[in-house]
Nucleic acid binder design. Structure first.
Length: 669
DNA sequence: GTTCTAGAAC
DNA sequence: GTTCTAGAAC
């Protein structure tokens, strides 16, 4: 706690009833435009607003959170709506506001999530700032604050969150809040989260944008809609009900353990996806149990959320966009019964029944089946759901088939199987969606299920490599021809210097196996070659260390390579090279797009394939790989990394991801 | 993957 | 004016 308030802020309930007050917590670093946002709304609004600004509240002295809480309470007591104008970037900084006022007023968050360089340049250039944060000092502070940024999440207790990622988002949000009359209320949910460039999903997104916009146009006229402009959430999201705890009477405490453990295990293995546990009632016991256990386990609340609402209307009513929803099905895969199963079949229409029949007749407890929704289904058009995954859990209800007679050893195993099968199904669906070409979307309704799948496989398999992208492939197939430039040739691989090295030492270990084009193709049968390529890489690192022990190395693959033929990058971490010229170069070695060889091998051993990261990571802002500071452009980044002596981040120091002269001797393979 | 270059950003 | 990025062509 930063402050010394003597008494807790208090609101009298009668005031709250007569006014639609709202408290808006702004979230953003210095320079993100929080104060400007508030001033713009306040000057245009018909509703009484008070801006509670920590920088200004201390009358010349540094303000405190306690003073802000008190001022917010006073304003709400007077029936005024409140902006909390402080950075609020960490969840902990927001909790007191939510805790003190959450039960008494609507609390919104507006996240001003503009690029770090924009915020920094605004801070550097401004004068006369209330908090006296301006000039060169600002860059350091903004950078530091952004490292601990935690995006606001509905499960903190916000009823509505608006994300603004650029000026036009900000403008739109200002307009919406300005137009809010004294008795208006904005619809709840999460708005404006979007991915910058999701090339693979573009077609689906484009289609979805259209239908969502049509659906929302009426609402927008009424001013009840959001700044949501139709673009999607950052990650594909699976919404699922709690399996077996309703009709099948499975013990809630045991079920919640299994949900949390299965989700955690899944999210550790699969990137760029999100899970949402959904229940209808805000008094849901299962949701509160799961929340409690999530917090205990420290699960990232951006990747696993709990959501109260109707699973068939998550987007239209709740503003939560889920590409895939799970259905707590019965073994006959038939509509009816009650609860979620009946609701989903009812909303999805006959189309879902037909599509389900094409896939499976029945379902065993502990298993699941994914059904693509025809584009004619209202669930697809209105909610943006592309697949329904039917899943069947264990039954503890004597009135229903397959009663387990209270055998929780069996029951827990089946429930675990059900969740892991559900999540795996979701991962494969999400992956296909990502790789889908626009052409395939057109084909969707014309062909039968089976041909569709074949098309997809062929589409993914037949990549279009340009002629320039075949250089490595040609070398691998005919090394004798290029012998002069090669460092080492074996039956399985070739080692050569990268033609355009991105660091002082940068070599490629190139597989010679025809048909193994890239990381995506690498499966269990390729483990021997992956291991021998890794060993070769480590051997070369040792040689380089004998020449220059100050170098550090990473060994890894690009998630999506530009050149055909699987190749392992062995690259020193100085990145001191004239060939490193652009953002893509940097981010391809310094974001999750670069998959460390040790992790790749582990993942293929355990799951049969390696995780791939999206190409959108290549567009990310430039951050130092050591101290994580942000930089506005490549020349500035390069001059920083030439000087930065910070230690490498902890995750690189684990599992021999980073090979330094001091630890390389310990590595025998 | 690189090179080239228009035009955005400074 | 110069610097830097990003998209097209190869």
């Amino acid at each position: 706690m930063d402050g010394g308030a003597s008494s807790e802020p208090h609101i009298s309930p009668k005031e709250e009833e007569s006014n639609r007050t709202v408290m808006v917590i702004l979230v953003g670093p210095p320079g993100s435009g929080k104060s400007t946002f508030c001033e713009a709304v306040i000057s245009a609004s018909k509703r009484p607003w008070v801006r509670v600004c920590q920088d200004a509240i201390g009358n010349g002295k540094a303000g405190t959170k306690a003073l802000c809480l008190k001022a917010a309470a006073d304003a709400l007591n007077e029936g005024k709506s409140v902006f909390i104008d402080r950075c609020n970037l960490e969840r902990e900084q927001r909790t007191d506001f939510l805790k003190l006022f959450g039960s008494r007023t609507d609390i919104h968050a507006i996240m001003l999530d503009l690029p770090a360089k924009v915020c920094i340049s605004r801070c550097v250039n401004r004068t006369g700032h209330e908090g006296n944060l301006q000039g060169g000092r600002a860059a350091i502070i903004v950078n530091k604050m952004l490292q601990n940024k935690e995006a606001p999440n509905l499960n903190e207790g916000f009823s509505r969150i608006t994300f603004c990622q650029n000026d036009s988002d900000v403008k739109e949000a200002i307009k919406m809040y300005s137009e809010l009359g004294p008795s208006d209320k904005l619809s709840p949910g999460e708005f404006g989260l979007k991915s910058k460039k999701e090339s693979g999903q573009q077609s689906i997104m484009k289609f979805f944008k259209k239908s969502a916009r049509e659906e929302n146009s009426q609402k927008e006229k009424e001013g009840t809609s959001s700044s949501e402009n139709g673009s999607g959430n950052e990650f594909p999201t699976l919404a699922f009900p709690s399996i077996s705890t309703a009709d099948f009477q499975f013990d809630l405490d045991k079920a919640s353990d299994i949900i949390v453990e299965s989700a955690q295990d899944f999210l550790r293995r699969v990137d760029n996806v999100r899970l949402a546990l959904v229940d209808l009632s805000d008094k849901s016991r299962i949701i509160s149990l799961v929340r409690e256990k999530m917090v205990k386990k420290g699960i990232n609340s951006n990747r696993f959320i709990t959501f109260v609402g109707d699973i068939t209307q998550l987007y239209s009513k709740g503003g939560l966009r889920c590409t895939v929803i799970a259905n707590a099905a019965n073994w006959r895969l038939k509509p009816g019964g009650g609860g979620v199963n009946a609701a989903i079949f009812k909303v999805a229409g006959e189309a879902l029944e037909i599509a389900t029949k094409e896939r499976a007749e029945t379902l065993n407890p502990g298993s699941s089946v994914a059904v693509p929704l025809p584009s004619t289904s209202p669930l697809y058009q209105r909610e943006g759901v592309t697949h329904v995954i039917h899943v069947l859990g264990p039954n503890m209800n004597p009135q229903r088939p397959n009663y387990l007679q209270n055998d929780y050893t069996k029951g827990c195993k089946i429930l675990r199987d059900a969740y892991s099968s559900l999540f795996e199904c979701f991962a494969s669906v999400a992956c296909l969606e990502r790789n889908k070409k626009p052409k395939l979307v057109e084909l969707k309704d014309k062909t039968s299920g089976e041909t569709k799948n074949k098309d997809k496989r062929e589409e993914v398999k037949s990549r279009n490599w340009g002629s320039w992208a075949l250089a490595l492939y040609n070398t691998a197939m005919d090394p004798e021809k290029y012998k002069d430039g090669l460092l080492e040739i074996s039956d399985d691989f070739i080692v050569l210097n990268d033609l355009y090295p991105k660091a002082r030492k940068h070599v490629l270990v190139l597989s010679r196996l025809n048909g193994l084009d890239c990381l995506e193709d690498s499966k269990r049968e390729h483990l021997p070659i992956l291991r021998s390529m890794h060993s070769a890489g480590v051997k070369w690192v040792k040689k380089f260390h004998s020449e220059d022990p100050s170098l550090h190395f990473r060994l890894g693959y690009h998630s999506v390579p530009s050149m055909r033929q699987l190749h392992l990058h062995v690259i020193s971490q100085d990145f001191d090279s004239p060939s490193l010229k652009n953002k893509k170069h940097w981010n391809s070695f310094n974001t999750a797009f670069f998959r460390d060889s040790v992790d790749v091998i582990n993942e293929i051993e355990e799951h049969g394939s390696a995780k791939l990261s999206s190409e959108k990571l290549l567009e990310m802002e430039l951050r130092c790989h050591r101290c994580k500071s942000a930089h506005p452009n490549i020349p500035k980044l390069k001059s920083h990394i030439a000087r930065c002596k910070a230690s490498f981040p902890p995750d690189l120091l684990q599992n021999s991801r980073l090979l330094s002269a001091s630890n390389n001797d310990l590595d025998t393979n």
